[in-house]
Design a binder for these strands. Sequence first.
DNA 1: GTCTATACTTAGATAGAC
DNA 2: GTCTATCTAAGTATAGAC
Lengths: 207, 207
Amino acid sequence: MTGSTGDTRSRIQAVALELFTEQGYEKTSLREIAERLGVTKAALYYHFKSKDDIVDSFVSDRVERLDRLIEWAAEQPVDAVGRRTTLRRYCEEFFGDDGRNVMQFFEQNRTVVKHHPAGQMLRDRMLRIAELLSRADPSPAGQLRATLALFSVHGSLFALRGEISSTERQELALEIANELLDRIGEDPTGNDEPEPGTDSTPAAAAG
Amino acid sequence: MTGSTGDTRSRIQAVALELFTEQGYEKTSLREIAERLGVTKAALYYHFKSKDDIVDSFVSDRVERLDRLIEWAAEQPVDAVGRRTTLRRYCEEFFGDDGRNVMQFFEQNRTVVKHHPAGQMLRDRMLRIAELLSRADPSPAGQLRATLALFSVHGSLFALRGEISSTERQELALEIANELLDRIGEDPTGNDEPEPGTDSTPAAAAG
DNA sequence: GTCTATACTTAGATAGAC
DNA sequence: GTCTATCTAAGTATAGAC
């Protein structure tokens, strides 16, 4: 019943990801990961060539998925509807299966991500998505709104006290993100150029 | 010219804080900190009893300042004006002198903060401020808006590409944070109870 | 207040048996 | 595919001279 597994590799990934997120990458030793799985350190080295390589294995997968999302998002219309659609897909990607776990690792290990090649790619993709979301207003205001919209999804995981179901959480994150997205390229003060061809927000249009 | 210093202690704090933020707490060794200052590891132990203690020294100071802010914020009116006032002070605290540095350390070392006693206090104070900001609407929506308002300040440091002055950055962060704060306890859809006695937002008041 | 020297522990990683 | 045994490097921390 030792089980020839074959999925030992993914069990290592799962345990490592969990511990890296909970305790931090540096604080988690290979010994600890091995013990949790009931194997020895040496066994880990059969499946991964280094500690870093474990990170690579699940981050790279995430980067690929985001690349597909980016490619798709670039084709969406540059208006409030397009932004909402893009963020909705991002949200689905985020809350899906291991998506959430990897992104939480991302949040909890910023300095690792910053210096790790695969981490830099992930970080880069995040910035790229924010960039696409603020195409209608690439000014600092647009950039910050887009970033906060993304962070609405991320933050919904730890900002909310009290019981709340996953779908409620998801809907709430989208609702507030949409408020931010709707303001991109809109300009309620009436100074700069308004975004052409966008009126998904009924309020504040009197001249 | 060796300088009897006397401020060696604060030089250690400054260098440590910078390296912890840039490379991460765990990745930064005491050897590295000592080398930067041109002293030996042992010298550090004269001023601090451990590596953790260095973190304590600058985080505790931050916690005290936030405690005063919290005490003050609790006295502010529970309306949009009170929230704006509170966040403005938070912003000033954040962008002031070492405030920004410590809070960046906080962002970059989440797992350290999570398991470090002083870090937990800092984290706790952040949550408390969000709680105060969402008093008018303690629902998940209010909580998330308040958290995003705070994050508008934090995020303004890394979300913005291109050159931008510190004051511009600060003003922008406040502007967008205020948009979020104004929606707390407001309810534009007209479902739940609206916040009593608040009309700092001129738009959308037709009944 | 800072140094040299060192004790103690643990980390990541490899070699080779089974 | 997993084990035992071991290497090498680096870490935090302490003792005691100056």
